[in-house]
């Protein structure tokens, strides 16, 4: 097998450059999906803790549905049904057609939506862990709701949320492999093409595993660093 390792290299016959590019695509699609998920997750938490019964209901249904349906189906739905969905909302918002959806957009939307449901659980837990006394104190000194969120809730909740958000990010990276079914050339798709062309399946799927391990391990380190830094203010109090 070592004789075939040149296939992973950067020579004329090597798949190295395209694999590197595909790895970056995995990062790009994961990152945009994760950020979309954070926005949706925050919205969902707002809905769930708000006094509005309808908002709470919508947020709950969103989380239950997205946590109960396979990721693969959501991606297929967005990709194949994407144009119909986009056209529906596009027309509703008054845009002129024709509407279209790329593999990147479909994958980002699908995974963002799935991740939003997961992130909302993490964020809700973090919100609930914010000591009620600090909220009351904020209210007493006359903060508006937005000030309260930005200066009291968000900074405290972020600290508790970091490990959970780290897990959500890891899930997003792994889910991004499923976007390969849309034809988007990210790591998984590129590796399948290479494996099919060269008939070196084991070699290329091992390469894929290593690429994902590198990404997951490095981001794990980043989240640990964030965790340590965010704890700085608490060091005296918590230990």
């Amino acid at each position: 097998m070592t004789s075939e390792l040149y296939l992973l290299g950067f020579g004329p016959e090597g798949w190295g450059p395209v694999l590197a590019r595909a790895g970056l695509m995995t990062l790009a699609v994961s990152l945009s999906a994760f950020l979309l998920g954070t926005m949706l997750g925050t919205l969902a938490v707002c809905g769930r803790v708000s006094g509005n019964a309808l908002a709470r209901r919508i947020a709950e249904i969103y989380v239950v549905v997205l946590r109960g349906v396979p990721d693969l189906l959501v991606i297929f739905l967005f990709y194949f049904g994407g144009r119909q969905v986009v056209a529906f909302f596009g027309t509703a918002l008054g845009f002129e057609g024709p509407f279209d959806i790329s593999g990147f957009a479909a994958g980002m939307l699908a995974i963002g939506l799935i991740s939003g449901a997961g992130q909302s659980e993490v964020l809700r837990g973090a919100y609930q862990a914010v000591p009620k006394g600090t909220l009351e104190a904020g209210r007493v000194v006359g903060m508006t709701r937005w000030q309260l969120f930005r200066r009291v809730i968000a900074p405290q909740a972020m600290v508790t949320a970091i490990p959970g958000m780290g897990n959500q990010w890891q899930s997003v990276i792994k889910e991004s492999a499923l976007v390969s079914v849309t034809g988007l050339v990210e790591t998984m798709r590129q590796v399948s093409i290479a494996a099919g062309t060269t008939q070196e399946h084991f070699l290329f799927y091992t390469a894929a595993a290593i690429i994902y391990l590198i990404i997951t391990t490095l981001s794990d380190q980043v989240f640990r660093l964030l965790e340590r830094r965010s704890m700085a203010g608490y060091a005296g109090a918590s230990r």
Binding site: K174, E175, L178, T216
Partner: peptide, 8 residues
């Protein structure tokens, strides 16, 4: 846990 199920 570090690789996608699809790769496995």
């Amino acid at each position: 846990r570090g690789t996608p199920l699809l790769v496995q």
